[in-house]
Design a protein around this nucleic acid. Structure first.
Length: 475
RNA sequence: GGCGCGUUGGAGAAGUGGCUUAACUCACCAGCCUUUCACGCUGGCAUCCAUGGGUUCGAAUCCCAUACGCGUCACCA
């Protein structure tokens, strides 16, 4: 049996998209699971939109997610080069071969002419197709056209009345009629291949055994299958995975918020959590457990547990999942994670930063959440809400707050431990306990009736500020 | 409009003719824990599988229509 080889072949026209990341992941999982090769190839034939920055972003994002490739750009391999613009020779030779065999032909129609044709067909309610005008040009006709300065494209001659079967590992067999596809361009007028031609050539020459990609490519597949046949290549196995949808059930796009992997990185999501979440979108584990490391995913993954129907991206679940991973992290890592979302001063006091991390850990879904939490200790006293007013109206309140303030003044070190001990002593001395003492203190210090542990909050706030608030409250 | 794919709860989904009185996870609700919130724990949450027909002793599971959703129809990938 030949080796399983899969590939992720993005075009570098923007940052790595969440859907692309999932395609990459599924390819990666299948490869690892079967001891195969995972290749990353760059489809950069769109000269107008491809940028080196995008390629860097895609590579960085994949690496950040832990999706590594054992062959392809940067790492090399025996099927190099792995950038399509570096493989033009191959495409040109093969296109020539198709022309020589009469399976493809030069077309001199201008884009305007084609556009006019399309519009006319559309008006008549027909499916827009290339008319086949240049299908049988003679040598003289070609010369004449060329002397007008026209640069030809190469079109593939689509056979008529053929049923095209696509064996798809997730969708079953899908059939298309060749009459539904017009003669399509395989080489643009500038000598660069189109996507449909380049993928086929590359997938074959790189000996790709399984093509796993998004469902949006399904309707392209008949063209590619036709090309495989014309070139005399065996077709690989296909697996078209369903789309990721936004909340409104349309294909996930910028309108739905963060779509690129870096967005999630910047917001302080953990790569392990994102990978786990992405895997659960369209694939379901056999077991009841849903939390998996990449290694476990490799172990559990199987294409026949991939769903046919599209999945809605549920931010709430991602946040929950991320929180699960985040809470397992050592305090130092959480501290490091929240630091970029904090004002710069925090950098200078690692002990205090660690205390902050420890205090807030349970309240974070992702690191950026810290921004909503710090006002509690750094911000101004919020206006007293109804609940706070109610708490502060208790008859024990002045005594409790005053004793607390006194104890704080005597405190040598303002630490959570000392604060806790002081509250305990306060209970003993005053005879008040439980909510009767904790609530007024919390309300007086934070202006809220709930939040993280009050001893830690106070320690983070600092002696001065706490004392000032306490005194302001009982005077 | 043509072609293609899909449709199980608010979301992800299991389920492939009887073991399903439809797993599990998120969300939601309730209780417990806790000074409070959060974390955590326990329990609840689809008499029903888009709709209508059919096949069958028996259907979410097979067949046919209809509806709805999405994708795609480029010298973009």
């Amino acid at each position: 049996m030949s080796k399983l080889r899969v590939r992720f072949a993005p075009s570098p026209t923007g940052p790595l998209h969440i859907g692309g990341a999932r395609s990459a992941l599924f390819n990666y999982l299948l490869a690892k699971k079967n001891n195969g090769d995972f290749i990353v190839r760059i489809e950069d034939t769109d000269r107008d939109r491809s940028t080196p920055e995008s390629e860097e972003n895609i590579k960085d994002s994949l690496r950040w997610l832990g999706i590594t490739w054992n062959e392809g750009i940067d790492v090399g391999g025996s099927y190099a080069p792995y950038r399509q613009m570096e493989r033009l020779e191959t495409y040109r030779n093969l296109a020539q071969k198709l022309i020589d065999e009469g399976k493809a032909y030069y077309c001199y129609c201008s884009e305007e002419e084609i556009e006019r044709e399309r519009a006319a067909q559309q008006e008549k309610g027909e499916t827009p197709h290339y008319s086949g005008k240049c299908r049988n040009l003679t040598e003289e006709e070609r010369k004449a056209l060329e002397s007008q300065g026209r640069k030809p494209v190469v079109r593939f001659r689509v056979p008529a009345g053929e049923q095209i079967h696509i064996p798809d590992l997730v969708r079953g067999d899908v059939t298309f009629d060749s009459d539904g596809v017009g003669d399509f361009v395989i080489m643009k007028s500038d000598g660069i291949p189109t996507y449909n031609f380049a993928v086929v050539v590359d997938d074959y020459t790189m000996e790709i055994s399984h093509v796993i990609r998004g469902e949006e490519h399904l309707s392209n597949t008949p063209r590619q299958v036709l090309l495989y046949e014309a070139l005399g290549y065996p077709t690989p196995k296909f697996a078209h995975i369903s789309l990721i949808l936004g909340k409104d059930r349309s294909k996930m796009s910028k309108r739905h918020g963060s779509v690129s992997v870096v967005n999630y990185k910047e917001q302080g999501f953990l790569p392990e959590a994102l990978v786990n979440f992405l895997a659960l979108l369209g694939w379901s584990p056999e077991k009841e457990e849903e939390i998996f490391t990449l290694e476990q995913l490799v172990e559990e993954f199987s294409l026949d547990r991939v769903s046919k129907s599209p999945a809605v991206f549920d931010m709430e679940k991602l946040r929950w999942l991320n929180g699960q991973y985040l809470r397992k992290l050592p305090i130092e890592d959480i501290a490091a994670g929240i630091l970029p979302h904090l004002s710069p001063e925090w950098q200078n006091d690692p002990a205090r930063l660690n205390l902050l991390a420890e205090t807030m850990a349970n309240h974070l879904s992702c690191f950026a959440d810290i921004k909503e939490l710090t006002p509690l200790i750094e911000g101004e006293m919020p206006e007293a809400n109804e609940q706070v007013q109610e708490v502060m109206a208790g008859e024990q309140v002045p005594v409790v707050l005053q004793v607390m303030a006194d104890k704080i003044k005597e405190m040598a070190e303002f630490t959570p431990e000392n604060i806790r001990a002081a509250i305990k002593a306060l209970c003993k001395e005053t005879g008040y306990k439980g909510a009767a003492v904790y609530m007024p203190i919390r309300a007086a210090v934070t202006g809220e009736c709930h939040g993280p542990d009050i001893d830690k909050i106070m320690a983070l706030m600092g002696k001065e500020k706490v004392l000032a608030r306490l005194e302001a409250a009982y005077k």
